[in-house]
Nucleic acid binder design. Sequence first.
RNA 1: GGCCUCGUAGUUCAAUGGAUAGAACGGCCCUCUCCUAAAGGGCAAAUACAGGUUCGAUUCCUGUCGGGGCUACCA
Length: 590
Amino acid sequence: MITLPGQIAKKLTKALRDELGDALPRDFCATVTVSQDLRYGDYQSNEAMVLAKVARRNPRELAQAVVAKLGDMTEAEVSLAGPGFINFRIKSEKYVECLMDMLRDERLGVPLVECPQKIVIDFSAPNVAKPMHVGHIRSTIIGDTLARLARFMGHTVITDNHIGDWGTQFGMILWGWKNLVDQAALEQHPIEVLLTTYKEVNKRCKEQPELLEACKSELVRLQSGDPDNLAIWKRCIEVTKTGLKKIYDQLDIHFDYWLGESFYNDALAPLVKDLMARGIARESEGAVCVFSDGFHAPQDDPFLVNKDGEWQPVPAIIRKADGGFLYATTDLATLDYRIREFQADSIWYVVGAPQEKHFKQIFDIARMRDITGDFRHVAFGSILGKDRRPFKTRDGETVSLQDVIDEAIERAARVVQEKSPDMPTDEKDAVAEAVGIGAIKFAELSQNRLSDYIFDWDKMLSLSGDTAPYLQNSYVRVRAIERKSGIPDFSVFLSDRACIRLSEDREINLAHALCRFAEVVPATLDDCRPNLLTAYLYDLARAFHSFYEACPVLRSEDSVRFSRLALCELTARVLKLGMSLLGIRMLERM
RNA sequence: GGCCUCGUAGUUCAAUGGAUAGAACGGCCCUCUCCUAAAGGGCAAAUACAGGUUCGAUUCCUGUCGGGGCUACCA
């Protein structure tokens, strides 16, 4: 199935080829975009103005010629405007056809990708014994949405939670476990005790440098295989995983694998040896490093930095002078494993923007090793505090993710109590959870992925305006209409009588919005930008609410009633599917 | 110092080089005998500064000012 703008683009491409002949590149494909201002049309193309330069022709004259070549289109009325815009106003019957197609299609018109890939998505990745805080929201929620989108588009997706289960924090935890922890309390509240222990040792280390040494030696003992320390370490991971899974279940986020850093432990020494043997890595100042191989121009080289007008090496260190391995070493082993064992075509790392250089180096080392694949660092901006400075993570003042979730559900519960006091308690709880968690996810996904944003309780947990509950409410409104319509099964009812008629402005607006779903979903995944989908769904819900106020459904008759019921049902389906791609639940009542 | 990134209504955010820069919150007006008012309909309000590229710049380039990040043994 081809989207509406896709059909137009195809014909436009042909018209341009007829007009320009060989001046057009062989693989040229015209783009048709949604008009910003609906007075000009529904879709527009700027190709004439862009290509006029290449063809050395007057843009308006070229556009004129292309419009003539297009002739009468079955899809749209074509017009020419300004310096060479080609505008398309979709014919009403074409919208009707599109809506009818959607009614019969489970995918609601969204095409599958032409070349399905196997994609490993690496996201969330919290550290053991340190609970998730607001800083983990972005990776966790964006990563989950990308996984859902990619699967829906037809890719094979493997989600992998690369937890930090082998870091230097274990020195402190081990020392604390042996010297501070009350074993009885640990049995009762393992996660809380683990956290307070870590915080306490961290605090003491800052005051007593000699304690830090004790912690380091605990770490060395762990890494050299001391059975006591290994047992404690394993117990920490178990406890942490149990706690994490509770949050993930609540968020409805699940992983295919939990291959943490420790999983790659045995692969590190051979990897470094291999890199040295192949001349990719060498010793420098006692450490083993990968330096630039001169493949890139200096300004694009992730292993060089300009200092006082000269290019200085910034190697990736893969083994410390003391023999220890680092983040980069583990990531190289991880990439290796994913390509070899998972047969991945592509790996997406949903990790903050500050690590851009790290990933450039990792991907470049993969190139040096002749490992090929589509490696992407899906970066995102930082979460800032009110003072516009990065949210601090080590001052103990960070808000935990669980607190954010609890607060969101609590706020939602108050609204449910206020709006629907007669609802059964069980349902109230379910609504509060879906609304609260939906609000968090939607707020996160509405942001431009790459911009920093300021964390604000009221904004993150807002329940009115451009938020998840606004969309959930439009779905609830449809469901209320459908319940009262007395029609038992909508899929049967709608397939029996194929007729939609659009006359009111608000019906046409709604129809337009519904048909756009098919083009928005692929675009969202192409750029890894969930905010395209949230913005679209909000637009759709707005069109629906507006339609709902002006166009009575159940009180209208015959074909109008049928037509409006069909619009309602399609709105519900698009909203439900769209929100499910964002990992947000819809409700029958609220 | 060098490199990267960001500066948009009072506030928080949008806008593949496109036409009159969109929303939300907050502010000010309206709308519940009517399918859930968690809603709808209005009003006021913004591209840091200075140049350049072109039919056209919030977007690309240069410079200035300001925030953040990175810049060899943390992850």
